[in-house]
Structure formats: structure tokens, C-alpha cells
Amino acid sequence: MILLKLIKKFGKINSIVLFICILLLLLEFVGHRHGEFKIEEFLFFPALFGYISCIVIFKVGVALRSIFMRDEDYYD
């Protein structure tokens, strides 16, 4: 029920993605995930890294707008 509500609120595709995400997190416990560096083997590291980088990129990008953005016909 809660699931249906969530799907309704969050959209179909989004919910699927969310579901996959949870699945991937669970897969962590199925086998041993090793990385190139020690820190990678930390629990959920790739997931967290991906999530956080994306947010950072977004934030920085928006911040950069104020510096680098000009009118469309700036060069004309």
C-alpha cells in the first residue's frame, strides 16, 4: 500500500529507479565487492559517491552560472 502510494507520488519510472537502487544496495551483501583502493570497499561507497557527486556537480554548476553565463548573443 505504501509502495503504491509512493509510486503514485514519485512517478512510475522514478519508482523503478528507486527500486533498482535498493536492489543494488542489497546486492552489496551477496558477494564481496572489492575495489581498486581500500576506501572503495567501504559499505555503499559507490552509491554514496555517485549520489553526492551528482549533487555537487549540480550545485557547483548553478554557482558557476552566475560567473560564466552571458546573454545568448553576447559575442554577436
Binding site: 529507479v17 528507486l18 543494488l24 552489496e28 558477494g31 555503499f44 559507490p46 554514496l48 559517491f49 557527486s53
Partner: peptide, 15 residues
């Protein structure tokens, strides 16, 4: 798995 986690969570962030 690492790659999938990385990418899906990045996608999830966008969502």
C-alpha cells in the same frame, strides 16, 4: 556492481 551503484545513484540524485 560498483559501476551500477555509482550510476544509478547518480541518476537517482538527478531524479
Amino acid at each position: 556492481l560498483s559501476q551500477l551503484q555509482l550510476l544509478t545513484f547518480a541518476a537517482f540524485a538527478f531524479i
